[in-house]
């Protein structure tokens, strides 16, 4: 239902322009594989594989967020775990206070925590937007390596903060005992939860598609490729980039909230700098600057994690080799291999 919705809405201004080229076909088949695969697994009673598909979808969503900053905005953020983790903690803390019947953050005049997904998602998106605005404001003054490092440093700051704040578990993390609720849906049902995540992924993809097709998208591309030219045409590149960075943080934060609900747990491992690297890896594996790249990247990554992890204890060794090979020899990632060079390159 959400699926058809997003596709008809893809580009209402230019309905004829949405043609299925090779990249389009690949994208569509990836989504189909996910949806059909999850449904078949559910019918076969294999909840584990449904959850594996949900994991792919959620990690893809985090990648879609980062891709907006990294692939389309040229901002190499090495700190997206901050938004992923913050989103997760919003879901966790909301559920914690709802379970305890105490006001959010223990501040008396705030409403009680919530176990409803919609307000939790909105809170996660809003807070991640604020955080990304703050970090973006301070970081976009720098560029190149400095930008990479300062985003990493901010994420580390939040990581250490979360570790040392005992109220919400610190290093122990925070379990979500009962998965958060959405109206009358049974979110504990693995397939229902999968399609919730899937719907949000489609919504995010369609949002990004429209955003990039708009004047804003053109300005963002120009800000990445030639900021000087953009400035001479009267548009300041920095605010454009900041907006993209904020939206990017929001999408990744939403993914974090879903991830916490999928696992029934939020912990500092969601804020770890390895997580930032992992989200980046997903974007690169799929193909930088391809809208559906993170979907391919996430599917490949989670599948490798599952398959290699079953074969050998040292699966990350092989992940490293694959990654190295992709960076050195297959720069376009999965999409580069399957669909040829990107329009964005």
């Amino acid at each position: 239902m959400t699926q058809s919705h997003s596709f008809t809405q893809t580009s209402p201004a230019r309905p004829a322009r949405f043609r299925l080229d090779r990249e389009g076909w690949i994208s569509l088949s990836l989504l189909l594989i996910l949806a059909v695969g999850a449904s078949v697994a559910y019918l076969a009673g294999e909840n584990f594989f449904v959850n594996l598909a949900s994991r792919m979808v959620i990690i893809a969503l985090a990648g879609v967020g980062l891709n907006l900053a990294l692939g389309f905005g040229g901002m190499v953020s090495f700190g997206h775990a901050a938004y992923f983790g913050l989103g997760g903690y919003v879901a966790g803390i909301g559920a914690f206070h709802a379970f305890d019947m105490t006001p959010a953050l223990g501040i008396p005049f705030l409403p009680n925590g919530s176990d409803q997904m919609i307000p939790l998602w909105l809170t996660a998106i809003a807070l991640c937007g604020l955080l990304a605005y703050g970090i973006g404001r301070l970081s976009l003054g720098t560029s190149g390596v400095y930008f990479i490092m300062i985003t990493l440093a901010f994420a580390q700051m939040i990581y250490y903060f979360a570790i040392s704040w005992p109220t919400y578990g610190g290093e122990d993390g925070l379990p979500i005992y009962i998965r958060n609720q959405l109206w009358g849906l049974n979110t504990n049902n693995s397939l229902v939860f999968f399609f919730l995540c899937f719907g949000l992924l489609l919504a995010a993809l369609s949002f990004c598609h429209r955003l990039l097709g708009s004047r804003f998208g053109a300005a963002l591309t120009m800000a990445r490729l030639n900021p000087v030219r953009l400035a001479t045409s009267g548009v300041e590149p920095r605010p454009i980039k900041l907006v993209a960075f904020v939206i990017s943080g929001m999408i990744t934060g939403l993914a974090g909230a879903l991830f916490a609900d999928l696992n029934g747990f939020v912990g500092t491992s969601m804020l770890d700098w390895h997580r930032s690297g992992e989200i980046m890896v997903i974007v690169i594996l799929g193909g930088v600057g391809r809208l559906y790249g993170p979907v391919a990247g996430a599917m490949l990554f989670v599948a490798m994690e599952f398959w290699l992890g079953g074969l050998t204890e040292y699966w990350q060794f092989f992940l490293g080799l694959v990654l190295l090979a992709v960076v050195l020899f297959a720069r376009g990632g999965v999409f580069g291999l399957l669909a040829g060079r990107s329009r964005h390159e």
Partner: peptide
């Protein structure tokens, strides 16, 4: 720098 970060992350 992006490629450098990733390749050395792989390392």
């Amino acid at each position: 720098h992006l490629d450098q970060v990733l390749a050395t992350f792989a390392l």
